[in-house]
Design a protein around this nucleic acid. Sequence first.
DNA 1: TTTAAAGAGGAGTTACATATCTACAAGTAG
DNA 2: CTACTTGTAGATATGTAACTCCTCTTTAAA
Lengths: 149, 149
Amino acid sequence: MILSRASQYAIQAVILMAMQPQGTFVLNRDLAEQLNVPAPYLAKVLQALVRGNLLYSSRGRNGGFCLREGVEKVDLMQILLHLEGPQFTDACLLGLKECTDETACPIHKQWKPIKHKLARVLRTETPGKLARAVKTGKYRLADLPMSML
Amino acid sequence: MILSRASQYAIQAVILMAMQPQGTFVLNRDLAEQLNVPAPYLAKVLQALVRGNLLYSSRGRNGGFCLREGVEKVDLMQILLHLEGPQFTDACLLGLKECTDETACPIHKQWKPIKHKLARVLRTETPGKLARAVKTGKYRLADLPMSML
DNA sequence: TTTAAAGAGGAGTTACATATCTACAAGTAG
DNA sequence: CTACTTGTAGATATGTAACTCCTCTTTAAA
């Protein structure tokens, strides 16, 4: 039902970067401010994506982060696999360590297709698509400021 | 993607109790052993269900816990609402606090039907149904012992 | 060359879910 | 009544995700 905060921040950040003209370096500070998330923590998440070869980073003045070529077309699942375990879509709803078609918990049969639908969405959506969705103005990336709630 | 451990233990426990003849009191100790979960922690979870009027408890010899009348026909959602917040099915995949049809994150449209399918399963399944499923022998409640993996 | 601005990396802190411990209250059986 | 067995309640401990801080290196502008 939930992705880790790190994953959520990562997806938000790559969408925001995909909204920039290709090759634009964006500061961690600016990403954090626009997404309204803690900057030092976001930095760690971005560093993990750099190590996963999803982002370029550049130090010093005019530094920052930007998507590697083609990453705007990479599906979200590829990005999440760098942050969650390799089999985070395998989780059993009841928490059993071993829950497969052969040895299944009593709700496995109903849970499995739902898991698969989510996995399908994550394999379908990309930073580029979602960036375009945000640009239409119908969707938004960050929480609204308190004044608007 | 995940229920809290407390919720997972709760569901497992009510299924196990639903497998007993109606009105049978079961010891916390025996539930914990059969489910292979920590007994003191399970006790806390069961106490919460007692406070939620889902279980009877009885102290002293021949004591234990048993389902209140009709609880074997109560859907899992009702049970979970006592342990997770009232709106745990509302969660935004990206973690936004406010994510509704009107102010939506870019993946809201794809995530919403999946959330609803899970909610539907949780409102359809009951301890009684799942207990019968386990009794067929095709499904199991607890993790297999190490010797079987 | 100096200086400021950025990311990198590691250690430390906090908050919360999970798990445990201890003392107690309530019930049962003899 | 006494002894034993069970759940109850509150305090405490542990583990982990989330978050912060400090120092270092790299880069580029002045």
